[in-house]
């Protein structure tokens, strides 16, 4: 029992996997509904993606090609840690950083820039599964509100925002209505990624380990951010207010990706780079190839 390699394929025992699998199918059948499941303890912290990890380990099989990202990057500490653990406990799988090569992608806080396909599944790690928690602390009452698709209090909250700030101040985790009924917390993806939920060719699965919930946005399903008719949904704005131009990644030059902001240690000014490191690398490769 000294190393992770002594553990069974996929770490979890087969009963645990069966439970997760049954839960996932219910989640797809009831789009956006948070299906409770027992959620086993994983050898990394609750909050580090244990929900996503249980989904990945219950889905993954021999010959699968896996990509793991965090903040858009394959090489961030947590992504490396999760990938390493999955490689240890699932010896016959392949891993990749290239989005188009992956059959299964586990991610925290981002949806890859490159459009996903029908033969891919995206697993998102979720810290807070319930968008109603900001207006109702009791889960028992929230379940009733969800069942009745009663989101009036959430809309009031958005409206109060508009009154106070002339702007909806929700930055990430933007409440999004799935198939016209359940409103989900799409995990802490930026607003920029929310439109990718809509009519996605790929299945999107959401795992909240600590809160013991799984939910899904099936492929080709309606996903609408909660808004008012006269206030459009707005994604993060990367326009340079001085020049009026959309900022570009200083590395690959892309003007249509989500950007991370840095301070240039030499000039003290701000510089921007793609948050999705694989997308950025592939953009550069293409530029060099041309």
């Amino acid at each position: 029992m000294s190393t992770a390699t002594d553990y069974p394929f996929g770490f979890l025992d087969s009963y645990a996997k069966k439970e997760v699998r049954r839960t996932v199918l219910k989640a797809i059948a009831i789009p956006g509904y948070q299906v409770p499941y027992s959620s086993r303890e994983m050898p990394m912290g609750r909050g580090f993606g244990t929900g996503g990890l249980q989904l990945t380990l219950s889905l993954i099989g021999e010959g699968e090609t896996l990509k793991v990202i965090d903040q858009g990057s394959d090489d961030s500490v947590n992504a490396v840690n999760l990938r390493h653990f999955i490689e240890l406990t699932c010896p016959s799988i392949n891993t990749t950083t290239r989005t188009q090569e992956a059959t299964l992608i586990q991610s925290r806080h981002r949806i890859p820039e490159q459009p996903l396909r029908e033969d891919q599944v995206l697993v998102l790690q979720v810290p807070y599964p319930d968008p109603l928690v900001i207006v109702e602390p009791s889960e028992t009452r929230r379940k009733v509100m969800h069942g009745e698709a009663d989101y009036s209090r959430l809309l009031v909250k958005l409206y109060e925002d508009l009154v106070h700030f002339k702007e909806i101040t929700i930055s990430h985790r933007y409440p999004t209505r799935i198939n016209g009924h359940y409103v989900i917390d799409p995990s802490p993806i930026p607003r920029y990624d929310v439109p990718k939920l809509h009519q996605s060719p790929a299945l999107l699965l959401f795992g909240a380990g600590r809160e013991k919930k799984v939910y899904a946005v099936p492929p080709y399903t309606l996903a609408e951010p909660l808004v008012f008719d006269d206030v459009p949904f707005r994604t993060e704005d990367f326009t340079d207010r001085v020049s009026g131009e959309r900022r570009a990644c200083q590395r690959c030059g892309s003007r249509d990706s989500f950007l991370d902001e840095f301070s240039d240690p030499n000039t003290g000014g701000k510089v921007y780079q793609c948050s999705d490191s694989d997308y950025c690398t592939q953009q550069q490769e293409q530029a060099h190839g041309e």
Partner: peptide, 16 residues
């Protein structure tokens, strides 16, 4: 676990 997770990067959400 959840307390510890706040030490993880939150660049994207903070950007937002």
């Amino acid at each position: 676990g959840f307390c510890t997770h706040y030490k993880m990067p939150h660049y994207v959400t903070f950007q937002s």
